[in-house]
Amino acid sequence: MNWFTDTLGTSIGKKLMMALTGLAFCGFLATHLAGNLTLYVGSEAFLSYAEHLHSLGPLITLAEWSLLTLAIIHVATGLTLFYQNWRSRPVRYSVKKTAGGRTIGSRTMPYTGILLLLFIILHLLNFHFVDKTGTNIWNIVTDTFNSGGYIFIYIIAMIVAAVHVSHGLWSAFQTLGVDHPKYTPFIRGLSIVFSVIIGIGFGFIPIFISISV
């Protein structure tokens, strides 16, 4: 192996890949949310946003393939780490209490991650791999959120995403080696604020659509 794959292959190397791909996803979530806020304005704003996005042409294709690549790295590495960590303690404690370090987010990373993966597949089936002839994306969105089941799934998924990111964002900085008494409290706070914005910003879309349309 060469120096590059060797460096990424160790425990810290794998963590580095998790952190970089995870941070890229956080950036994606932020832009995705900014775009989706047009849904709160109405059909015209949303459709013109969608049109602008698609007018980017090859750039959008590039972004899609990049996201897919990042997702494959994040999921494959995440599952590998999960398996290795599960194997690293063959005999479990009969009594185990936290000393106060863990959070709901940090405890559940692999589980929220797997749920997110399932959700992302469903989400793409709902809005990406659909026949758009004779209709438009606004209609597809409003039709989907006509169903109580979808509203429920989407809200739960956004809570799951918020929980994942509440640990993930801070954790990625720590993994990258950014930890200092001066700014770590800020980064930890930012993770919580960011996850609340993601959870509320996305989570209210289905409710808003089902009430207003």
Binding site: T10, S11, K14, L81, S106
Partner: peptide, 20 residues
């Protein structure tokens, strides 16, 4: 780091239990 991995320790997920 190489030795630590080879000896069968797990990977850090920044749970912060160790410092606590």
């Amino acid at each position: 780091v190489k030795a630590m991995d080879a000896l069968g320790f797990g990977n850090c997920t920044n749970e912060r239990e160790c410092e606590a």
